[in-house]
């Protein structure tokens, strides 16, 4: 539109203002486009680097990369596979999510709808602070405090619910999948709670009043108007938390016993994840070992991507009921 105006002097008033506007417009457009392209270029460069580094190691692998449950890339006949690691990553992260989401949603509801205003402010701040604790601190807390502490409750679960495979097994240990998942749950709780709180605060007053006017109690208002409205946001928050839990490295590297079994037993001394394995093995890795670890990183990247796409699908499924139109 404005591109047809060339005169700067003597043009119409409209033309003059249009050309002045376009003078600021063009650099800004290039700058923002450039930023977008740069981001894509960096992503592509990382992907290419990872693939190039991973390929020689994958060629040298004598086991099946997706099925083998060992990690011996430094041997003369390298054999390594992602199976146990990928399982451990997803399993521990899912456990963490199951424990964190109800608590996080409860905290968010308390802050947004139950707590007196001043307390809500303080509590919101504390939750944000929880997110600022470095992950190595969580790891140290997990291994020095939580792991010994969990021996008692774990034994209790094992004794009374041991017939469920989840709590079965021969030996019960503090450094277990359960402990690691608990630490992960604490770590992802702040982000889920913070996002959920924001979503719950955005519920239009009109919807809450509609429920109130029907004679709803506070809990019924939450069930009728707040939770359904906040559902997509809570799902997104949970998926963000899941992504974080799967990518978390140092805390779980400290706690996991670095085994290579696929097992649903969460009380026994075992467990591992892709990120923890990378942290534990990188120092001693040879050329092939590094390539193998990079290949496992690629798998983690793909899993995270799938999780995010899944979350988007869930959110989009009931879009016409989302309230975006109202």
């Amino acid at each position: 539109m404005a591109a047809t105006v060339h005169t700067r002097d003597g043009g119409s008033a409209l033309g003059r203002s249009a050309s002045r506007r376009s003078r600021g417009e063009t650099p800004f457009r290039y700058a923002s486009t450039g930023a977008g392209i740069l981001l894509l270029a960096i992503m592509a460069a990382i992907a290419v680097f990872l693939v190039v580094e991973a390929i020689p190691a994958l060629r040298a692998n004598t086991g099946g990369f997706f099925t083998t449950q060992t990690w011996e890339p430094n041997a003369t006949r390298p054999s390594f596979g992602i199976a146990a690691l990928a399982f451990g990553t997803v399993f521990s992260a899912l456990l963490a999510l199951i424990m964190a989401v109800p608590v996080a949603v409860g905290v968010a509801l308390f802050i947004s709808h139950y707590a007196p205003r001043r307390l809500a402010g303080v509590l919101g701040y504390v939750v944000d602070l929880l997110a600022a604790v470095p992950s190595v601190v969580y790891g140290l807390w997990g291994i020095t405090f939580l792991a010994p502490f969990m021996v008692g409750p774990s034994n209790f679960l094992h004794d009374h619910l041991g017939f469920i495979p989840l709590f079965g097994g021969d030996i019960v240990a503090g450094r277990s999948v359960l402990t690691a998942s608990l630490v992960l749950a604490v770590m992802i709780l702040p982000i889920i709670a913070a996002i959920s709180r924001e979503v719950f605060l955005q519920v239009p007053r009109a919807h809450e009043e509609a429920a109130l006017a029907l004679g709803a109690t506070r809990w019924e208002v939450i069930r009728m108007a707040v939770l359904p409205y906040g559902r997509p946001g809570v799902i997104s928050a949970a998926m963000l938390g899941l992504g974080r839990a799967m990518g978390e490295t140092i805390a779980v590297a400290l706690i996991f016993q670095a085994t290579f079994d696929i097992s649903l037993r969460i009380l026994t001394p075992q467990g591992n994840s892709i990120a923890a394995n990378i942290a534990n093995r990188f120092g001693e890795a040879t050329q092939t070992g590094r390539g193998a670890l990079i290949a496992s990183g690629l798998v983690l990247f793909v899993i995270t991507l799938l999780v995010n796409m899944g979350a988007r699908l869930i959110v989009a499924r009931r879009k016409e009921f989302s309230g975006a139109a109202a």
């Binding site: 009109a206 919807h207 009043e209 509609a210 006017a213 359904p228 409205y229 559902r231 009921f321 109202a326």
Partner: peptide, 12 residues
């Protein structure tokens, strides 16, 4: 019962 100024059906 009450009816409000702006129609406010539950969007979900």
């Amino acid at each position: 019962g009450m009816v409000f100024q702006r129609p406010n059906p539950f969007p979900t």
